[in-house]
């Protein structure tokens, strides 16, 4: 995978048909991505995708359509067999890894650690190895972690181990950890699929707020058409590893989405 610094990414003015993108360069440009866990069975087939800042892009697809694999390739956890991912990120800490935060489907939280410790793992790349191994974080980073958790409404559960938190609270801890990476893009896999509808709406409202007000892009995979209808600024539909539809949010009705999924 090639990682390009600011200025190298393709210009959004020519690459995107969307209003919000005209002002910005894409945060991530994926060109003709191919990936398969077996070389003769591609799971992601020739995906080309630009993701722009300050917008919620939702990838809709059935189970096995390649959504999760695409996110892992974009994050760099899997290496594409063909194609490339260009990240136009500011690398304030000198490391590109923090530019894209990844929240896996099961959230990937360390259950025995407290909410605060989990959130601080998002800042590990900003702390020296020796200090972090001794669990000594700079005061400014600890303050930032506390503030981030508090802003997400969990200030009273800072020192609670994650295994004692509810599903919605864990989701917030995962978001806080992602935000501690100062990301330009958050990749979230089936983010709210295991939550009750009201908690899911709370979390999605919060995520949309973060995206629109902080300029952080969100790329969320889901198989729930109602979530896409209510929250997506842009809808990308995947089927059998390919993108079969890409349009601004609000243009597809639920029956149309279901048709595309079949």
């Amino acid at each position: 995978m090639s990682i390009d610094l600011p200025g190298d990414a393709p210009d959004a003015r020519t690459a995107s048909p969307f209003g919000y993108a005209v002002r910005r360069q894409p945060v991530v440009h994926a060109g003709d991505l191919w990936f398969g866990y077996r070389s003769d069975l591609p799971v992601v087939r020739g995906v080309t995708l630009d993701v722009y800042s300050g917008a919620v892009t939702m990838i809709l697809g059935r189970s096995g359509s390649g959504k999760t694999t695409l996110l892992k390739v974009l994050k760099g956890l899997l290496h594409p067999q063909r194609g490339s991912v260009q990240i136009a990120a500011r690398c304030s800490n000198g490391r590109a890894a923090g530019a894209i935060a990844y929240v896996p489907q099961t959230l990937g939280l360390v259950r025995s650690l407290t909410a605060l410790d989990n959130v601080l793992t998002g800042a590990l790349s900003r702390v020296g190895t020796v200090r972090s191994l001794a669990h000594i974080f700079p005061g400014a980073i600890v303050d930032e972690a506390r503030e981030t958790i508090a802003r997400l409404g969990l200030g009273h559960k800072l020192h609670e181990p994650v295994y004692r938190l509810s599903g919605g609270e864990r989701q917030r801890v995962a978001i806080a950890r992602a935000l501690m990476q100062h990301p330009d893009l958050i990749l979230a896999d089936e983010f709210v699929s295991q939550l009750d509808p009201i908690t899911a709406c709370d979390i999605l409202d919060m995520m949309r707020d973060i995206s629109h007000n902080r300029g952080v892009s969100l790329l969320v995979t889901t198989h729930e058409t109602d979530v896409v209808e209510d929250y997506a600024d842009r809808v990308v539909v995947m089927r059998h590893g390919e993108i079969v539809h890409d349009s601004p949010g609000g243009r597809l009705s639920q029956p149309q989405m279901l048709d595309l999924l079949r």
Partner: peptide, 13 residues
């Protein structure tokens, strides 16, 4: 859990 490893690794650790 590989997702825990991926998440912490993905944070740049």
């Amino acid at each position: 859990d590989p997702e825990v490893v991926e998440a912490v690794q993905g944070a740049g650790s």
